[in-house]
Design a protein around this nucleic acid. Sequence first.
DNA 1: TTGTATGCGTTATCAG
DNA 2: CTGATAACGCATACAA
Lengths: 334, 334
Amino acid sequence: MFKIDNYNKVTIKDVAARAGVSTATVSNVINNSTPVKEKTKELVLKTIKELNYHPDRMARGFKTGKTHTIGLIVPDISNNFFASLIENIESILKERNYQVLIANTHESAKTELDIIKLFTSGMVDGLIIASSMTEYKPLEGVLPKNGRIPVVFLERSVNNCPFDSVMISDYASTAQSVEYLIENGHKKIGFLYGINTISPCIERLNAYKATLLKYHIQINDSYIKNVPLYAFGEIKNLIDEGCTAIVASTNKVTIDAIMYYLNNGISFDKIQLVGYLNDSFASESMTNMLSVLHPIKELASHAVKLLFNRMANPSSNIKNTVLLSRFVKPQNTK
Amino acid sequence: MFKIDNYNKVTIKDVAARAGVSTATVSNVINNSTPVKEKTKELVLKTIKELNYHPDRMARGFKTGKTHTIGLIVPDISNNFFASLIENIESILKERNYQVLIANTHESAKTELDIIKLFTSGMVDGLIIASSMTEYKPLEGVLPKNGRIPVVFLERSVNNCPFDSVMISDYASTAQSVEYLIENGHKKIGFLYGINTISPCIERLNAYKATLLKYHIQINDSYIKNVPLYAFGEIKNLIDEGCTAIVASTNKVTIDAIMYYLNNGISFDKIQLVGYLNDSFASESMTNMLSVLHPIKELASHAVKLLFNRMANPSSNIKNTVLLSRFVKPQNTK
DNA sequence: TTGTATGCGTTATCAG
DNA sequence: CTGATAACGCATACAA
């Protein structure tokens, strides 16, 4: 019985020494880089197992410059939209044998910059970012502009951003939803939205306003509620103010609304609700709700595709893709 | 040869050369490790900014063996319980100036092992794991047993696990909830649960069964539904089978139930519902639902505390903490 | 087929 | 206060 050193980490040297070969041979066995005699290979593998040796990823990545890991940066992991996005991206990337590292910025610009610095300093081979930035400027300092690391921006557009991107446009679907409400006699339509600086929220709000104006309905600012955290209070306010319909224009606000409705015995018949959800999920659940559905699988697969294209061809033209969400009426299959 | 040098990453050497000092001096400036003359310091900092230099985290971690990063492994990021847990842990760790890296295992044992290998090979200084394993055995090969890396297990217990842990016990609160239902005349009580191999789910199911027996109500297996993905179908089945109350014994299943109820015009009065949610959130939302509430903040802070204690004192005794969830009746403050 | 030597970017030691 | 230089663990070109 050989006593394994319990204090120090076991390295390639230990394996080599124990097996009576050179570190190069061990390395070759691990990476299949150069043919190794079957007998030696067996011995090395046996020794590796005995010593419970695992190559130091840090050292290896540091040496090779490749980590086979993709960094995924999202602003709010507790928002099911992003959680679901992460899962979709993960499953695609796993097929390609890439590991995913997730970081949550909590909508904080500082954290976002920190994380990007962390990831880009040798930790990942590529980056997918749902940024909480409005302008590209602050990112300039931390994102290797020379294409050293491929980057794809997603879901939230950043002005003047010189990278590939996939966005979702909700303008048309939001307009359709408001139109539907108006056509069904609603005039007092509440609008709940999330962070008022990011592109998707602004776009939806604009669509809401434009549609009201199109139908000559005056915009009432007190029907428009900004919801930084939970929406319960503002939903109550909207109802108290006489709204007969509510557009819950983010995934998070929609979940809040659903809870509020059930908790307070409100039905869709009483106060119409337009909810924003992922299409893959909503088709199974909220079939009787007016919905704006986001193509989350498509978003994920497109982002990954862009990333790998960029890896293969770093100097190709920048691609900006826009996917469309769609407005869906209740199935009423009750 | 495969090292992509044409994208010339800027290193400490470049800074040193440009500033006309040694790499040691640059390093000293960056890390405040040794006093540097104010004048030189300024020059170096200026040069760093000019060249937009960022220390390679990989190289640094490789050299120092410390990364100031904690790995957080969860089985299902789209489960709001874990998403919320992540956020809580993050905010505590940020105070201590630690970065958090999140990995999602998708309830896959293989992925869990892969991630642990990745993280423990020099990427993080500590690990917090909500494992999807039942037994410790498979983890043995990948987790440095010598305390080289501190590890805390959380939320799901793993048999024979030789590490610190914080669990939540739902036995008492689940029993109370079923008791409450029985006392209010319910006899046909449906039970929805998630993965049937993990400790929390088993515990809840046991509590449900034991309570029924205690009140001499026969256990009807068709009222017990296992829900791997979405619960909508099984909720419908339970109602069709005549259940007058449902225990939705996980966060995920609870959200599904809430959606199903609203979408199908079911009220709590019609079919009683016991939901499992985070306490910090539920107190704002589902105030009129029978609830089992999980102390998520406490869970997070306790896990971090254990981790840092372990770091400070690697050889102290293993601590296994159990927190209790609590059963809460509706406020009926409608 | 295998071993030797080198260097990746950084920090730490020790002279100067 | 500052500068050489030696490690850290690994992969690889090249020599044997």
